[in-house]
């Protein structure tokens, strides 16, 4: 149409549908009061509080934080980024599980197939591996940041201990995942690593036997590390993360200022 009524009509119709949707019961049942997604939402101090308070985010953040906590130079977002990397690793890890069998030699061939046959297979595997390395780094740097800010001091002593456990679990997760490609790098790196454990006094050999599933690494170790890597350790680390985040909130949020 020459006057453009048709186009405007479609636009109006789409807008009307959007408004209708945003006023619907379904929409309002998903987005709780205060959410910016709601049609009746306005930017007010109360709604800013509701965005956090009426949201699962309230488990992670209070409604307000001390102003210095906003400074990127203060926290460097390291704890949050560690958590974010954990989520990325979970998502990419689930993707990889669809294409991976923890048996010898299938494991190695599955990784080769991932690079050649699976759409985005190599990219996702790369993200999983580099993400794991990055997570070890961010968790470690988070620990040093917390130390230099004295953020382990009362009442946060126990949360520091939980944090050290999380660091250990991160290393164990990375280590168990290291074996899974079942190539020369994986096999011998894990051999070197688990040989260290065998030197532990008194019960070192028993620990090594249980961990490896035998006196030396075999294909059975692959299954054992796989279950530890995809099920047991994530389960444990999620529990400790829940405690860690909860204690951050309960112990008074962000520490400082210096």
């Amino acid at each position: 149409m020459a006057d453009g009524n048709g186009k405007g009509g479609v636009l109006t119709a789409v807008k009307g549908m959007g408004t209708h949707l945003r006023n619907s019961q379904v929409w309002n049942s998903i987005f709780r009061p205060g959410s910016p997604a709601r049609a009746d939402s306005t930017d007010s101090p109360r709604n800013r509080a509701y965005v956090v308070m009426n949201n699962v985010l309230y488990h992670l953040h209070p409604v307000k934080v001390k102003r210095h906590g906003l400074k990127v130079s203060y926290v460097l977002c390291l704890g949050g980024l560690s958590f974010f990397l954990f989520i990325i690793l979970t998502v990419t890890g689930i993707f990889l599980m669809f294409y991976y069998r923890p048996t010898s030699p299938a494991a190695y061939f599955d990784l080769q197939a991932l690079a050649t046959d699976v759409a985005f297979g190599q990219l996702v595997r790369n993200m999983h591996r580099w993400g794991a390395h990055l997570m070890v780094i961010t968790v470690f740097l988070h620990m040093t940041r917390v130390f230099y800010h004295g953020a382990y001091k009362p009442p946060r002593e126990f949360n520091w201990v939980v944090g050290i456990i999380l660091l250990l679990l991160t290393l164990l997760l990375s280590f168990t995942g290291y074996l899974l490609p079942w190539d020369q790098l994986a096999l011998w790196a894990v051999t070197v690593g688990s040989n260290m454990g065998a030197y532990a006094p008194v019960f070192g050999e028993q620990v090594s036997f249980i961990l490896v599933g035998g006196v030396q690494i075999t294909a059975d170790t692959l299954l054992r590390f796989y279950v530890l890597h995809v099920l047991f350790l994530p389960f444990v680390i999620v529990i400790f993360m829940a405690v860690h985040f909860w204690r951050v909130r309960k112990d008074g949020g962000i520490s400082g200022p210096l």
Binding site: S174, A186, M196
Partner: peptide, 22 residues
């Protein structure tokens, strides 16, 4: 991400190194 040859119990690479964080 690196993917070397298939795991071989009879051929230890030289040097054999643990994962970098160890």
């Amino acid at each position: 991400a690196p993917l070397l040859e298939f795991a071989n119990f009879n051929q230890q690479p030289n040097p054999s190194k643990a994962p970098w964080y160890f």
